[in-house]
Amino acid sequence: MQLPHCVGEMRDAASTITTEGAAAAADGGSPVVALERLSRHFGERTVLRGITLELRAGQTLAVLGRNGAGKSTLLRILATLLRPHAGSVKLFGEPLPRQAWAVRGRIGLLGHEPLLYRDLSGRENLTYHARLYRVPTARVEEVLAAVGMRQRGDDPVRSLSRGMVQRLTVARAVLHSPELLLLDEPRSNLDPAAGDLVEPLIGRSAGITRVLTSHDPQAALAEADLVLALAGGRAAYLGPPDGLAPEKLRSLYA
């Protein structure tokens, strides 16, 4: 790994990103995410039912629950990729799905799939995304540096290790300086050093409003202002992280 000699450039990049995030947090007031009795089903199976919550600017929502509880579905709805079937979803005050176009550029999604073309290099992939988001291409170098991938930026994605792909994915998700980050197990495949590397971009210190899921509930709780625990598509718990009793947490994953 080529960490040591790119630490300088990555600090610079990280600091600019942090200020942007803080600016976004400052204009808060109205909630960034507002769900009211949100439901979504797949065929006749209900994946989410009656989820109501509000998330204010700069806050972090941790979504907990075992596999199939509806975490990823919730994130995909917030990313405007899935339509809600009942209830209302408002992002930045704009109702979905009607005003989805108005919020798309303000959201960054870091999901299970890297959303990168395997046969293109990281740099080419990010350049493509920069064009989609109308972001100056200079920004590509900035985020590549921030995740420490400038050196390997010209290697095709298929030749990179999982951790490196995940770092590129982080770079992709923050490329357009989103005001809302949707993070689905963002630290999977990242070693601790790489985790520290992406912290200023997607971590709590970035100051960006975040919705995150994690396979490590303790770590997620430590980062969260608000916790939503899902069981069978319903909200089993909604509230501050310290209100969630340990036995309740255990039962979620049992």
Partner: peptide
């Protein structure tokens, strides 16, 4: 096929275009 298998559709749908 590349869009479908490598997330190109999602990436495109996420963008404000």
């Amino acid at each position: 096929v590349a869009e479908r298998e490598q997330g190109g559709f999602d990436a495109f749908l996420l963008a404000p275009v």
